[in-house]
Write a protein that binds this DNA or RNA. Structure first.
Lengths: 322, 322
DNA sequence: TTGAAAGCGCTAACAT
DNA sequence: ATGTTAGCGCTTTCAA
């Protein structure tokens, strides 16, 4: 900037004015400055600008896995909103590891992101307290923060969706409905179990419930075990997209009614096509980002906690009779 | 940092030493400083550090769409390598728009990223020249840069993979093999057409080739048109994952042999299961990131241009006879 | 309309 | 082992 100034024969501040489009610069002067900028290939050093202004025009996004379709869709929506507000996106994957989540969040804070959007892996977010007090707003998405943190949170209607799926299978005559869910320590998994259990009422049978990490072998074993019971399940409700796919592979042709939580690409091309409870990851990302930017523009109202609706998409697999 | 220094009764520089783990600080002093840091909840301002040191420990990633599975997988691999090198990832989607690509790259440069990984949307990258000369290395992935830019580039063996697919269908007795490809302005699409055409030799018939944006209606129309020909195709080679899926939907049960470029989730669960030419997006991301970090650690050797192999995965759809 | 000076928070270079 | 000083490149404040 100094070089540009001397090349254009003006003071530093005048270059700064031109670069920032501030008013009160004579058009002729401005043109001279712009010419010098082009000639020298100057571009503003954002680091210095950030240091001086205290705002980075950057948003930090911590999700479970940047490569997972659900979170990738969420991230894309966040990016779109951030771009519209002239902000850049710094993103990282927690890999479902609370320590990594914390590290990412604190690294982002050290870089002075203006705000955070977090899909938490852990249940304790007291480490965020100082950052929040220091004025860095955070919005939680998909899962709530740990106790004691009163921040905006966008959740899907997990329990409602699970109940919807379960009632759908009940309505088609099933009374033995199995549930495969993710680790119950994960918020969404626990809520979905809750919805399933509530909808089932007295038909609930814990032998038809398996929860754990969705790798093929345990899922296959659990299914085999359930199908060997005296009164085996005639229907299956899977608690997330990965489990649906894993179960589909493990089932390999066995005729069981199936409803899965989360929609997935090609669900319509399978035979039978798969009935699902669909969430809208893009909407979740958009809502979270909009809440964040509302905070960034000064909103200090009480924390918002929108619950996003989910919908049942009947495609065939969920409409099979016992 | 100043506050920490006076709280601990030491000079600024001593705090700096402790924070950066520099040697030559008395353990007792260091402990006093650390106590002050904890008490005051101090965390280093990275913006200031960046300004002073000139390195941001940040890598910029420009891809077509953060939400696309192929690029999301590539991005995840880049993130892993960047994290291993203590770097953060700034990422953005170009949406196949050259202007947006340029804007993102230049924004990243203004933020002084240490290096760039770019999946280019445009064919002209002269705008990168000044940045490269200024010492910001760039690695291109999936597609090469425009003319005049001699930078590291990681590509897949597009032509080879297309030829492999075509020969596979020929070997199964097909002589009428159609090709659906992306817009030929896209590098990978052009290379795949080339491989297909080469493998087909004198059997090539331009009436069996359609290239364009893979939205459902045009693809359906093109297929209908081809199937109404005197000598209709008995096999189909689709030039990317989205086209494979689109074609599958348009085909809806018609018995045509099919090989698709790009593997996709659930390809094994369709009936027939889909034979594909598989790329490895994670490997592409990893190789690109490793090339970048080699440059960042001072390698000034000639530009590298690795071609990643692809492989044919026979699953059924490609082994159907005419 | 333009400019001079101070300083954002840190680290490098050079004392002590 | 610890401290002092200068300055990274910009914006803010105040003055001309």
């Amino acid at each position: 900037m100094k070089d540009v100034a001397s090349a254009a024969g003006v003071a530093l501040k005048t270059v700064s004015r031109v670069v920032n489009g501030e008013p009160g610069v004579h058009p002729a002067t401005a043109n001279r400055v712009r010419a010098a900028i082009d000639r020298l290939g100057y571009s503003r050093n954002e680091s210095a600008r950030v240091l001086r202004r205290g705002r980075t025009a950057t948003v930090g996004l911590v999700i479970e896995d940047v490569g997972d379709p659900f979170y990738a869709g969420l991230g894309r929506a966040v990016e779109t909103v951030a771009t519209a507000h002239g902000h850049l996106l710094l993103s990282g994957s927690s890999s479902e590891d609370p320590a990594r989540e914390r590290e990412l969040v604190l690294t982002f804070c050290a870089r002075r992101v203006d705000g955070l959007i977090v899909v938490p892996a852990g249940r304790d977010h007291s480490y965020l307290r100082p950052e929040l007090d220091a004025g860095t707003p955070a919005v939680f998405a998909d899962r709530p923060p740990g106790p004691g943190l009163d921040v905006d949170t966008v959740l899907a209607d997990n329990a409602g969706g699970a109940a919807l799926a379960t009632r759908h299978l009940l309505a088609h005559g099933h009374t033995r409905i199995a549930f495969l869910g993710d680790d119950p320590a994960i918020f969404t998994a626990a809520r979905r179990l809750h919805g399933y259990r509530t909808a089932l009422g007295s038909l609930y049978d814990e032998r038809l419930v398996w929860m754990g990490t969705p790798s093929p072998e345990p899922v296959r074993a659990a299914l085999d075990h359930m199908l060997a019971l005296d009164r085996p399940p005639t229907a299956l409700f899977t608690g997330n997209g990965r489990l649906t796919v894993t179960a589909l592979r493990a089932l390999a042709g066995r005729r069981l009614a199936l409803v899965g939580f989360d929609d997935f690409e090609l669900s319509d091309l399978l035979r039978p096509a798969v009935t699902v409870i669909a969430q809208d990851p893009a909407r979740m990302g958009r809502v979270a980002a909009e809440l964040l930017f509302r905070r960034l523009s000064g909103d200090t109202g009480p924390a918002q906690n929108p619950i996003l609706p989910v919908s049942l998409i009947p495609r065939g697999s969920g409409e099979i009779s016992p």
